[in-house]
């Protein structure tokens, strides 16, 4: 089982090498040029899902797409608290937090006096 890869180019390159093919040989199978394969593998061109599927089929592999939870690292605890408030209270709390930050960053005043 191969590890997940980050780009279509890396995916294709990993599969091609695993199957012992050169770029030229894969290009021959696909009816394209070695340079076209090279561009994809170097992520200089972005293949469509259909193209990538076809190239992988020519290597005896299938493309598996999956959608998974995006691990953003955002802690939604504060948001959950905000959602228990009315929109007006949410805005008041946010602006109060902004004031707190203003007052606690060394007295810097970002606004000019009128």
């Amino acid at each position: 089982m191969s590890l997940p890869v980050e780009t279509p180019g890396a995916l294709l390159r990993e599969a091609r090498i695993r199957h012992g093919l050169s770029q030229e040989q894969l290009a021959t199978r696909a009816g394209t040029t070695q340079s076209a394969i090279s561009r994809i593998e170097k992520d200089r061109s972005s293949p469509t899902v259909a193209t990538l599927t076809e190239l992988l089929h020519l290597l005896g592999e299938d493309l598996v797409l999956a959608a998974e939870k995006w691990e953003t690292g955002i802690d939604v605890t504060l948001n959950e608290g905000n959602l228990r408030l009315a929109p007006e209270q949410r805005v008041q709390r946010g602006l109060a937090f902004a004031d707190f930050i203003r007052r606690n960053r060394g007295g810097e005043n970002p606004r000019r006096d009128p």
Partner: peptide, 15 residues
Amino acid sequence: GGVAGLAHGSAYPTY
């Protein structure tokens, strides 16, 4: 902007 985000429940302060 940020005020609209706050109204929706965002936790990001806005200035």
